[in-house]
């Protein structure tokens, strides 16, 4: 006979192990590369959105920080590699990613120290304001940022000095974005299954109790916010590098709200919600925009209302419910 609690301890001890189905998104991404060679530009955008949503999931889904300004960090990363390439001749892509992560992370750290003292609506407002400040800075600093027109026609060096970004078919861009996503995903996955990730979940579930068990809540939140900002910065940098331009669209409310929708649609606090949400949202947007060029946002709106009313935990939440029911039926 096994002692009581043994099963629970085993479940916790095995939680971080890779499951067989976790290979599926990557297999699908590689398959898409061969099956849809003319859609690789779109596919690259999907991969970037997944990475961006993943960074948001860390703070919103796990730590419970509700933010409307996450595009601030995406934009910071996007502009960092753009400015470095245009004005400083720094166009090596991988070191550009590091620079973008450092700049976006630094902005995340400084703003996080200030704004993570607030909660709820006040937090929403200050995250929004931080992003608006950055957006306006990018608009006004035209000498460096190109202002409203942005910086078109940027050039980046080949990856490892070998793989040239392909302006027509996006093959290199797609695989590059996929590789960056994989590296960042492994990092985020380790983070959420670590004791640090567990404590972020604790902060989300009950901050009063986290204080009472002696957790340095504020410090943990700032650390999580900084890491998330750095990852969003990397996503923004990949955007600039693969599309060879950057403009104000990278840090507006549209992009911040878009990534929020992606995460809610897929299911937040679930790692793979970013994947499912980004694919679902962008494919839906793409198809609707093709079929109804003027009214496609109506369709998106209806889908979102349905999700908000009937599927609070997004698409993955629906899948979990169905799986739970199936198990119950099998058990009975």
């Amino acid at each position: 006979m096994t002692p009581p609690g043994f099963a629970a301890a085993q479940a916790l001890a095995a939680r971080h192990r890779f499951k067989w189905w976790e290979v599926l998104p990557w297999v699908a991404a590689i398959a898409a590369f061969f099956l849809f060679p003319t859609y690789l530009s779109f596919g690259t955008q999907v991969l970037i959105t997944i990475l961006f949503a993943l960074s948001l999931d860390l703070v919103m889904g796990y730590a419970g920080i509700v933010t409307l300004g996450h595009a601030a960090f995406f934009g910071a990363g996007a502009y960092t590699v753009g400015i470095l390439a245009l004005h400083f001749g720094w166009n090596e892509p991988l070191s550009g990613l590091v620079a973008a992560a450092v700049v976006a992370g630094a902005i995340g750290f400084v703003s996080g120290v200030v704004l993570l003292r607030t909660q709820g609506l006040a937090l929403l407002m200050v995250t929004l304001c931080t992003m608006a400040l950055l957006e306006e800075s990018a608009n006004m600093g035209a000498a460096y940022t190109g202002g409203f027109d942005g910086m078109p026609g940027l050039e980046f060096a080949p990856i490892f000095g070998v793989f040239q970004f392909d302006p027509l078919f996006f093959r290199a861009q797609y695989l590059y974005a996929l590789a960056v996503l994989l590296v960042c995903f492994v990092l985020v996955r380790a983070l959420v299954y670590s004791p640090f990730g567990e404590s972020l979940t604790g902060i989300r579930e009950n901050v009063l109790r986290m204080h009472a068990v002696g957790a340095p809540v504020q410090r943990r939140l700032v650390v999580a916010y900084t890491i998330s900002a750095a990852l969003a910065g990397v996503a923004g940098a990949v955007f600039t590098q693969t599309t060879a331009f950057v403009n104000l669209s990278v840090l507006g409310l549209d992009r911040a709200a878009g990534v929020l929708i992606v995460l809610i649609l897929g299911g937040y606090g679930r790692l793979y919600g970013a994947f499912v949400g980004a694919v679902a949202y962008m494919v839906l947007e793409h198809t609707l925009a093709k079929a109804y060029p003027t009214a496609w946002q109506l369709g998106i709106g209806i889908v979102l209302i349905v999700v908000a009313l009937y599927a609070r935990n997004g698409i993955l939440g629906i899948a979990e419910t169905l799986r739970g029911r199936l198990r119950m039926r099998r058990a009975s």
Binding site: G5, A8, A9, L12, A13, A14, R15, H16, A190, L191, Y193, S194, P195, F196, G197, E198, S199, G202, M210, V213, G214, A215, R220, V223
Partner: peptide, 24 residues
Amino acid sequence: LENVYIAVAERMGVASSMIRPAGR
């Protein structure tokens, strides 16, 4: 179990550790 884990991890000073999984 996780509820108590969070408290014990905090006391043992491992709660800020980021790479090694909580389950290990």
